[in-house]
């Protein structure tokens, strides 16, 4: 790691102030991506501002029919929450599939979503459930949030406060994990939401995306059979040592059918 100055923010305002002072500061949530990145010298921030000490960024609560999860809430807390399980079991299951127990004790939903790793699990739930990302300055709809590989609509220094999830009628997540890292080679989140069917695909392409063809097919007939013949577009898929683009395209269809079959 290159040397940096470590700061522990005590409040959102403190974090904003510290972001304004360094030459090239960066925010740290759970550190499960940032610390390995620093260790590989893939980043050289002047200052690391740890959000871990800001208690009010963490927590799970209902606000009417809306589930609210604080940005610094750990994966383990979501996976084991009775509130989340009652609201949307698929969301708790997804959190329990991330990494391993030690990673789930540290990693946070806000860190995962703000980083927007193409193979991360949470972006598919945020997009698939049509959640709203609440930051220190505004609210951003999930459909406008994920803009590209490791890119989001967040401005420099903008801090995610919480996620607001509208209640789905039913939802499921099916994931084909990399057996070593547990990142998604392909993960598909299917939800019957208040505004219709949403199918969000992660792992497959440079950025999480909605599969319009599958959504249309499921709107007419919510069954795994309705997805026969549908898959990803191999021309838009990632290809690497773990899986070819053609294989990922195929897996998109398989994971989507498995997700639907698990909830009908």
């Amino acid at each position: 790691m290159y040397e940096f100055t470590y700061h522990r923010a005590t409040s959102l305002a403190d974090a904003k102030a510290k972001m304004g002072q360094g030459d090239d500061p960066t925010l740290m949530a759970g550190g499960m991506t940032l610390i390995p990145t620093l260790k590989q010298r893939l980043a050289m921030p002047s200052d690391v501002i740890d959000l871990g000490g800001i208690a009010d960024l963490s927590g799970i609560r209902m606000d009417g029919d809306t589930l609210v999860i604080g940005a610094m809430t750990k994966h383990h807390s979501v996976a084991s929450s009775d509130v989340v399980k009652a609201f949307c079991p698929a969301l708790a299951e997804l959190a329990g599939l991330i990494g391993d127990p030690m990673v789930r004790n540290r990693g946070t939903i806000g860190g995962s979503v703000a980083n927007n790793d193409p193979a991360a699990d949470y972006p598919s739930a945020v997009l698939g459930l049509g959640a709203t990302v609440v930051t220190d300055t505004r609210e951003i709809a999930a459909d406008a949030f994920f803009t590209g590989m490791f890119e989001t609509a967040l401005e420099e220094g903008e801090i995610v406060r919480e996620f607001r999830f509208p209640k789905p009628k039913r939802a499921a997540y099916s994931k084909f994990p990399n057996p070593a890292s547990r990142y998604a080679i392909v993960g598909v989140f299917v939800a019957e939401a208040a505004d219709g069917i949403r199918v969000a695909v992660t792992g497959a392409a440079p950025c999480v995306f909605r599969h319009g063809g599958m959504e249309a097919a499921l709107a007419g007939n919510f069954s795994a059979g309705a997805l026969d013949g549908l898959k990803g577009d191999a021309g838009a898929m990632n290809s690497d040592i773990h899986a070819s683009a053609e294989y990922r395209a195929h897996l998109v269809g398989v994971m989507a059918r498995r997700a639907v079959a698990s909830i009908v």
Binding site: Y6, R8, G31, M32, I35, P36, V48, D50, G52, H76, D100, P101, M102, V103, N105, R106, A180, S181
Partner: peptide, 23 residues
């Protein structure tokens, strides 16, 4: 990845190779 560095921080298992001392 390997977990040989696992310790408990406030009762929770964490990988101490991915945790800053100042944290």
């Amino acid at each position: 990845q390997c977990g040989a560095c696992t310790v408990h921080v406030n009762g929770e298992a964490v990988k101490s190779c991915t945790f800053l001392a100042l944290m």
